[in-house]
Amino acid sequence: MTRDSLSPAARLLCDAMTAGFPGPGDVAALRAAAVPGPPGPDVASVRDTLAGGVPVRVYDPAPGAEGRPLAVYLHGGGWVMCGLDTHDRLCRELAAASGAVIVSAGYRLAPEHPWPAAPDDALNVLLWARAQAASLGCDPGRVVVAGDSSGANLAAVTALRAPELVAGQLLVYPPLDASMGSESVTAYGRGHFHTAAHMAWYWDQYGGDPAHPHVSPLRAPDLSRLPRTLIVLADCDLLRDEGLAYGRRLGEAGVDCEVRLYPGVFHGFLGLPLPAGAAARTGAAAWLAATP
Rank of each mutant, 00 (worst) to 15 (best):
A159N: 03
D222P: 08
A167N: 09
R219E: 01
G208W: 06
R249S: 10
Y188L: 01
R240A: 14
S150E: 01
T158L: 02
M199L: 13
G207T: 09
P213F: 05
R249D: 06
H198N: 08
H192S: 05
F193R: 09
D209Y: 12
T195H: 02
C236V: 06
Y246E: 08
L230E: 12
V157E: 02
G243K: 04
S150K: 03
A162G: 04
S149M: 06
L176R: 13
L160E: 04
H198I: 00
P227R: 06
A234S: 13
D204T: 12
L160P: 03
R219Y: 00
S150R: 06
H214D: 14
S224Q: 02
A167G: 13
Y188F: 15
Y202G: 04
E164Y: 11
A197D: 12
C236T: 12
E183F: 00
A156L: 08
Q169H: 11
G168Y: 15
R249M: 03
R228C: 04
R225I: 02
A220E: 07
R190I: 03
A197C: 00
S182K: 07
D204I: 00
F193I: 08
Q205A: 14
G243H: 01
T158F: 01
R240H: 15
S150M: 02
L230N: 10
Y206K: 10
A167L: 05
L238A: 10
V232C: 06
R240W: 10
E183K: 03
H198M: 08
A187E: 14
E242C: 07
R248A: 14
A156T: 13
P175I: 12
I231Q: 11
A200H: 05
L244Y: 00
H214F: 13
R228N: 00
V215F: 03
A197K: 01
E242L: 08
P163Q: 12
V232D: 02
D177S: 06
H198E: 07
T229W: 05
L223F: 07
L238M: 13
R161P: 05
H194C: 14
A159G: 12
R249G: 10
L170A: 08
D209V: 12
D235H: 09
L239Y: 10
W201I: 02
R225W: 01
G168L: 14
Q169L: 11
D177Q: 08
T195Q: 02
S184W: 02
V166Q: 09
E183A: 15
G247D: 09
R190Y: 07
G208K: 11
E242A: 09
V166R: 08
A155K: 13
P217M: 08
H194A: 15
G191K: 04
H214R: 11
D209N: 14
G191Y: 00
T195A: 01
L165S: 13
D204R: 15
R248T: 12
A152R: 07
A234H: 06
R219K: 13
G191F: 08
E164G: 15
R248D: 15
I231V: 15
L171Y: 11
A178T: 11
R240V: 11
D241K: 07
A159Q: 07
Q205G: 06
Y206N: 10
S179W: 04
A234G: 14
D235A: 14
R228T: 09
W201R: 04
G207F: 07
D204Y: 02
Y173I: 03
A197H: 00
D148T: 09
R228W: 01
